[in-house]
Design a protein around this nucleic acid. Structure first.
Lengths: 150, 150
DNA sequence: TATTGTTATACTCTATAACTATA
DNA sequence: TATAGTTATAGAGTATAACAATA
């Protein structure tokens, strides 16, 4: 009831919450990035490789839409992966315009080895939180993913 | 009780949660970045400008620690802000080695005008969520900020 | 000597514009 | 013509290494 009754005040609250969340996202994202060890792939390339490993072969357009970048940007990320032999390009036999990207065995190996190590510090922090807080974070992750995809 | 009893299973759960959150963070962060309109400052420069606007003058080292980047990186971000006349450098009278950065009136104006516009789409999404979900996001923002600062 | 900050250089990531190849 | 993808170029953001200035 009070939600609808206090229209503009609630709107300001939501705006403030939006800014607060956005700021927190930016901070933790940079923190993740700073945890990267030398020799690792960059964050964009890593995200793509994990996706290929988990979901199997994808077209370039599918990857670019999933990551919210232009096809031109994604092509360059893929170039870094293929140059390092972590991913491979192949033509779609049904439609010669399409390119299918897939993780190589070397790439899959890297994903498996790197994942736990990369977020080890973060998992350690999570383990120390009360159950309720972990639940809030799990729900938030789901919501943020939905909003990102909207 | 069951948390401690099922040691390694719980540890795997926390790791999976960590990866899930990290992936969601990366996705929503890129989405925020893709919403940036041409002519805007970049995200790093914007974050610094907002900080200067909110907290007042800061040294370069304080800024670099707050954003978890090296002083050399921060110096370059600050260069972009000062070149655009959104921030100004001044020497600390007590310690000539230190540089104090502050937002210019033009910079403060920009922060105020840009904030709401920049996250408008996000706030609109938040407004449509049930109250419980907004609460989960608010809690998550607090937790993520604490973890980022740890 | 230690602290604070800067510049030089290089890499990742992203975008826009212009292009090729296939449908 | 429309779709899928690539390359060229430019700019933001970051790091390491080497440096200058001040304490």
């Amino acid at each position: 009831m009070s939600e609808k009754a206090s229209g503009s005040a609630a709107a300001r609250d939501v705006e403030a919450l939006g800014e607060e969340i956005a700021a927190a996202i930016a901070r933790i994202y940079r923190r993740f990035r700073s945890e990267r060890v030398s020799g690792d792939l960059g964050d964009a390339a890593t995200a793509v490789l994990i996706l290929l490993h988990k979901k199997g072969p994808q077209t370039l357009t599918a990857l670019s839409e999933h990551e919210h970048v232009t096809p031109a940007s994604m092509s360059q990320v893929v170039n870094r992966l293929t140059t390092a032999d972590y991913a491979a390009r192949s033509r779609d036999p049904q439609d010669g315009r399409k390119v299918l990207l897939s993780a190589t065995p070397l790439g899959s190996e890297l994903v498996i080895a790197a994942r736990a190590r990369r977020y080890a510090w973060f998992s350690a922090q999570l383990a120390e939180l009360p159950k309720d807080d972990r639940a809030a974070l799990a729900r938030a992750a789901t919501l943020l993913r939905q909003i990102a995809d909207s």
